[in-house]
Each structure stands twice: as C-alpha cells, then as structure tokens.
Deep mutational scan, measured.
Amino acid sequence: MQIFVKGLTGKTTTLEVEPSDTIENVKAKIQDKTGLPPDQQRLIFAGKQLEDGRTLSDYNIQKESTLHIVWR
C-alpha cells in the first residue's frame, strides 16, 4: 500500500509499505529516500508519536494515510 510522509518543509515523500511493517522498517525506507537516519526521525500520526516496535496496523494506518515527520 502507499502512504505519504510529510515533513516540516511541506515536502511529501511517498512510500510503498505493508500494514505489517514495523515503524522501524518504515524509518529505514524513509532513510533510503531522504538520507535522514532513523535515529533522527520522529513519526507522528493522529497526534501520536509512533514507536519503533509497533506496526502500521497497530496504529490503524491505512493506504494513503499521511504521517508527519519531525527531525530530532
């Protein structure tokens, strides 16, 4: 499925993911596209910070959802 990651600059990155992907895995995909290391990424969805060990489905993140990224 496709999801979007929007940064503070307003730039949006598209990712191809599975609902079973962990947040850690998603951060690795973001690094592949942007070069930003996972330890500098904070992902937010529906006002919650996403924890590395959880999956996208744990947070009810579905296709075409938009996550927000904040740099540490």
Rank of each mutant, 00 (worst) to 15 (best):
residue 18 E to L: 15
residue 50 L to D: 00
residue 18 E to C: 09
residue 31 Q to V: 04
residue 5 V to S: 02
residue 46 A to Y: 08
residue 59 Y to H: 03
residue 2 Q to I: 15
residue 15 L to Y: 08
residue 4 F to C: 04
residue 23 I to F: 02
residue 6 K to M: 13
residue 7 G to I: 10
residue 6 K to V: 15
residue 15 L to N: 01
residue 48 K to C: 06
residue 4 F to S: 04
residue 8 L to D: 06
residue 59 Y to N: 02
residue 67 L to P: 00
residue 26 V to A: 02
residue 32 D to L: 13
residue 21 D to C: 05
residue 49 Q to W: 13
residue 16 E to P: 03
residue 68 H to L: 14
residue 36 L to E: 04
residue 26 V to R: 00
residue 21 D to I: 05
residue 4 F to P: 01
residue 13 T to L: 15
residue 51 E to W: 05
residue 50 L to F: 01
residue 60 N to T: 05
residue 38 P to S: 13
residue 49 Q to P: 11
residue 41 Q to N: 05
residue 10 G to S: 07
residue 38 P to N: 07
residue 51 E to G: 04
residue 19 P to F: 07
residue 62 Q to H: 10
residue 7 G to P: 06
residue 25 N to C: 08
residue 47 G to S: 05
residue 23 I to S: 02
residue 33 K to H: 09
residue 37 P to L: 09
residue 63 K to W: 07
residue 9 T to M: 13
residue 55 T to G: 02
residue 19 P to R: 07
residue 72 R to P: 12
residue 54 R to K: 14
residue 62 Q to S: 12
residue 57 S to Y: 09
residue 39 D to T: 11
residue 17 V to P: 00
residue 67 L to S: 00
residue 13 T to N: 06
residue 30 I to P: 00
residue 54 R to G: 05
residue 51 E to V: 08
residue 29 K to T: 03
residue 2 Q to G: 04
residue 24 E to F: 13
residue 47 G to Y: 05
residue 12 T to Q: 07
residue 4 F to G: 02
residue 29 K to F: 05
residue 50 L to K: 00
residue 23 I to K: 00
residue 53 G to S: 10
residue 66 T to E: 07
residue 39 D to E: 14
residue 7 G to Y: 14
residue 34 T to E: 05
residue 12 T to E: 08
residue 54 R to Y: 13
residue 29 K to A: 06
residue 14 T to D: 04
residue 58 D to W: 11
residue 31 Q to H: 15
residue 66 T to P: 02
residue 26 V to C: 03
residue 3 I to V: 06
residue 61 I to L: 04
residue 35 G to D: 04
residue 9 T to S: 13
residue 65 S to R: 03
residue 43 L to T: 01
residue 56 L to I: 09
residue 38 P to I: 15
residue 37 P to Y: 07
residue 4 F to R: 06
residue 24 E to V: 06
residue 52 D to K: 04
residue 47 G to C: 05
residue 34 T to Y: 11
residue 43 L to A: 02
residue 38 P to Y: 11
residue 48 K to N: 10
residue 19 P to W: 06
residue 55 T to I: 06
residue 60 N to E: 06
residue 55 T to E: 03
residue 20 S to C: 06
residue 59 Y to C: 02
residue 38 P to L: 12
residue 72 R to S: 14
residue 27 K to R: 06
residue 63 K to R: 12
residue 28 A to N: 11
residue 11 K to E: 14
residue 8 L to Q: 09
residue 9 T to R: 12
residue 65 S to T: 07
residue 11 K to M: 13
residue 57 S to H: 08
residue 61 I to D: 00
residue 11 K to I: 13
residue 29 K to L: 09
residue 10 G to Y: 05
residue 16 E to N: 13
residue 55 T to W: 03
residue 57 S to T: 08
residue 68 H to N: 08
residue 71 W to D: 08
residue 18 E to T: 14
residue 38 P to A: 15
residue 24 E to A: 14
residue 6 K to P: 02
residue 28 A to V: 10
residue 43 L to G: 00
residue 64 E to T: 06
residue 68 H to F: 14
residue 66 T to K: 04
residue 64 E to C: 09
residue 51 E to A: 08
residue 52 D to Y: 05
residue 64 E to N: 14
residue 24 E to L: 14
residue 49 Q to N: 10
residue 39 D to A: 12
residue 41 Q to D: 02
residue 39 D to F: 10
residue 50 L to Y: 01
residue 60 N to I: 03
residue 70 V to R: 09
residue 50 L to Q: 00
residue 34 T to H: 07
